[in-house]
Design a protein around this nucleic acid. Structure first.
Length: 288
DNA sequence: AGCCAGGGTCTGC
DNA sequence: GCAGACCATGGC
C-alpha cells in the first residue's frame, strides 16, 4: 500500500477515490483505446469518462485535469487492483528519457506520450489475442463483448466478468457461432480446455523466464509468435516483448531495418505500443 | 469486387 | 526451417 502512497496522493470523496496528479503524464484515451484492451468505452466526452471491466472488476475512470477519479471506488483492495492494472507505479518518464535518444521514438512520444502498458489478467489477455489474429480492432471488441455477455458471470453492477476457462471448456463449437469469431472458435475452445484441465498452468507460466513462457504459450492452439508476445506484454508485463503485427512490420522496415537500438530493447514493448499508434494514426505509410 | 485487419496452421519441399 | 494456401468475418 505504501508504494501507492509514494507515487500517488490519495483523496477520498463521496464520488470515489481521487489520485492526485495521476493523469498528468498518463493518457486514459491513448492507454485504453490503443489496441491492448478491448473492453473500454468512453461514456462521456466532457468530462472525459471511461468505463470498463477487467477480470472481475469494473470501474468508471474520469480525467479531472491532472487528477484521476475512480468513481465509486472506496476500498483499498479495489484501489490497489486498478493502480496495478493501469500501471500507475511505473515511471514512464524515465523510460522515455531513454527511448527519446532515438529520433523516431521521440517524435512518436511527442505526439502520443502518456500510454501505459496495462497489467491485464493473463487468461483474459490470452483469449482476447487469439481472437485478434488476422482481425481488426472494432471487430475484436464486438467478439469480446459478446463472449463476456454470453458466458461471463454477471457482476453486481450489471456488467459481465470475463468468462473462466472452465465455463468455456464445457461449450461446443456450435454454441460459439453467435460470436461470429470464424475459424478462431476451435482455437478458443482448445485453449480453454487446456487451461481448464491444467495442461498448462497459467500461474506457473507467469513466473517463467520470458523465452520459456513464450514457448509454452505457443502450445495453445491459435497462439503463434505475435499473439504470444502480446500476451507476454499486455498480460505478463514483459516490457521487453515486441509484438510484430502488420503495422509494426511497416515501422521496422521503414525506420529500423537493423532492429531497435540496443538501449531501447528492455523497453521495446513500451516503444512498440506508441509506435503502433503513431504508424496507424499519422499516415506514415500509404497502405503498404 | 477485392483488399485488408494486432496471424496461425498445415502441407510440401 | 521456410514459402504458400487457406482460413471466417465485416468494413471500406
Amino acid at each position: 500500500m505504501k508504494h501507492i502512497l509514494q507515487k500517488n496522493v490519495i483523496e477520498q470523496t463521496r464520488e470515489g477515490t481521487i489520485l492526485k496528479g495521476a493523469a498528468k503524464d498518463f493518457s486514459l484515451a491513448l492507454t485504453l483505446d490503443c489496441g491492448q484492451a478491448f473492453r473500454w468505452r468512453r461514456v462521456s466526452e466532457e468530462p472525459e469518462i471511461w468505463q470498463g471491466t477487467a477480470a472481475r472488476h469494473t470501474v468508471r475512470l474520469e480525467k479531472r485535469g491532472e487528477d484521476l477519479l475512480l468513481h465509486a471506488i472506496f476500498q483499498m483492495e479495489e484501489l490497489t487492483f486498478w493502480v496495478h492494472y493501469l500501471d500507475l507505479e511505473q515511471d514512464y518518464q524515465a523510460i522515455w528519457r531513454i527511448l527519446s535518444e532515438d529520433q523516431t521514438m521521440r517524435l512518436a512520444y511527442e505526439q502520443f506520450g502518456g500510454m501505459h502498458i496495462l497489467q491485464q489478467d493473463l487468461w483474459e489477455t490470452l483469449l482476447t489475442f487469439i481472437i485478434s489474429a488476422n482481425n481488426n480492432i472494432p471487430r475484436i471488441r464486438g467478439i469480446v463483448e459478446r463472449l463476456c455477455e454470453q458466458w461471463g458471470e454477471l457482476l453486481p453492477d450489471g456488467s459481465h466478468a470475463f468468462p473462466t476457462p472452465q465455463t468455456l471448456a464445457r461449450l461446443k463449437e456450435e454454441e460459439l457461432m453467435p460470436l461470429r469469431a470464424g475459424y478462431r472458435v476451435p482455437y478458443l475452445l482448445g485453449t480453454a480446455r487446456m487451461a481448464a484441465e491444467g495442461e498448462i498452468n497459467l500461474d506457473e507460466l507467469a513466473v517463467l523466464p520470458t523465452d520459456e513462457a513464450r514457448r509454452m504459450l505457443m502450445r495453445f492452439p491459435g497462439v503463434g509468435p505475435k499473439v504470444a508476445d502480446c500476451v507476454l506484454l499486455f498480460g505478463c508485463h514483459r516490457l521487453e516483448c515486441l509484438p510484430m503485427d502488420v503495422w509494426m512490420k511497416r515501422v521496422m522496415r521503414e525506420f529500423y531495418p537493423q532492429g531497435f537500438p540496443k538501449y531501447a530493447l528492455p523497453w521495446a514493448g513500451v516503444a512498440q505500443q506508441t509506435l503502433f499508434h503513431y504508424a496507424r494514426t499519422a499516415a506514415l505509410f500509404d497502405k503498404k
